[in-house]
Nucleic acid binder design. Structure first.
Lengths: 224, 224
DNA sequence: GGCCACACGTGAACC
DNA sequence: TGGTTCACGTGTGGC
């Protein structure tokens, strides 16, 4: 029963070919080499010796091909692959995403020239320029999250006042198990700017970027 | 043939459970429901009617479980998932990794370019300083609730800063379905005073006094 | 020969 | 209704 030949996993003899959707090319065998291995024909008493392909045989083949192609592409963008297997490829991708997100956060904080100790000293005058570091994502820097120390962050939010908006921000902070160490809010006509000094307890891992994006989606002006 | 039930993909009725290696828990069925469907026993002429589990049945089950767990974890760290499917999850992860890498590159270049340029970036400058404390406010009525109009109140809270205290206040406000219209907080060494302008939605009935008492019990100093 | 990772075909559930 | 996605059990090749 000639199965599809395996793609010679790297393992010890690391080949590291620039494999790019070559799986698709492997699927081009069409309907050529079919109709053999006539054994145990039991399902239907039709005269043909073939296996009565089960309605979605090639569709499933194609789906598997696409999935494997995506895994290969994923393996191509992740720098350090530990083991040449699907499972570890996914695990490495997860770790890489987390590392990249933390790196972005750290770089943004460095770029924002955060006067960290001035803010941590609660009570002293604090002056900050809320600047949009990069208009990288769709929101224009209305939320900034700047790491301070171990689990502490400065959180700056600039918004236009709307009904129930601050409540949603509070709910988001509650849901992410965030302790608010201090908060300063200034409000002027129609606008408000809040400066949180927050602390997170457990594995903050990557959830801080999630929290930042969530807050951004909350305070961003609704698309007119 | 009772297969494993499917995990009710999000799609329209999005549930968004915090799924974390719940796949592993689903794999704990062990070797319980086996031994049925005795049809076409052709492989070995043993007397038992069971299917002669092919030596690596549960190993394969475990492998599938690990792989699905990793896909779920991957879906957890990627912010915007388009479709709740394995293939698009991997595709989104690939796109997200590429975007993050470009973002890191851009941030690094911006950081390396001119360190003093951050001040010239666009953005509304804001400056806030906390007031000098007039250290004569020792009123033990730490919570004041002043009705303003229909459903609006002024809420003044004075407290000594403690860990997690403000979070509890926020939770209390959330639980009482309170909309925060505006908030000003001033903090000085060890103390903070917050001025909420809040609004309650539905039948506020008597709950406002409940809320005030709850807040008082939260912010009151622990009896030494 | 056991273990591990994989590809395969298939029934079933969901649009 | 098909089309699509999924889990399942199994065969097989490489350590």
């Amino acid at each position: 029963m000639p199965r599809r030949p395996r793609a010679s996993r790297g393992g010890s003899g690391g080949e590291e070919v620039k494999m790019e959707d070559f799986v698709e090319s492997m699927l081009n065998l069409g309907g050529g080499g079919e109709g053999e291995e006539s054994e145990e024909g039991e399902q239907l008493p039709a005269a043909d010796a073939t296996q009565y392909k089960s309605k979605n045989l090639d569709a499933e083949r194609r789906r598997r091909g696409r999935l494997n192609t995506n895994i290969l592409k994923l393996r191509a963008v992740v720098p350090n692959i530990t083991k040449m297997s699907k499972e570890s490829t996914l695990a490495d991708a997860i770790g890489h995403i987390k590392k990249l997100q933390n790196q972005v956060l750290e770089l943004q904080s460095q770029l924002a020239d955060s006067p960290g100790e001035a803010w941590e000293k609660q009570g002293s005058a604090s002056c900050s320029e809320s600047l949009a570091p990069t208009d990288n994502i769709h929101y224009q820097g209305q939320v900034e999250l700047i790491p301070l120390g171990s689990c502490k962050y400065n959180l700056k939010i600039f918004w236009t006042k709307r009904a129930g908006l601050f409540t949603k921000v509070l709910e988001a902070l509650c849901n992410y198990n965030v302790q608010v160490l201090s908060l300063n809010t200034i409000t002027y006509y129609g606008y408000a700017e809040s400066f949180f000094c927050i602390e997170v307890k457990g594995e903050q891992d990557v959830v801080m970027v999630e929290l930042r994006d969530l807050l951004s989606s909350i305070v961003e002006v609704p698309s007119i």
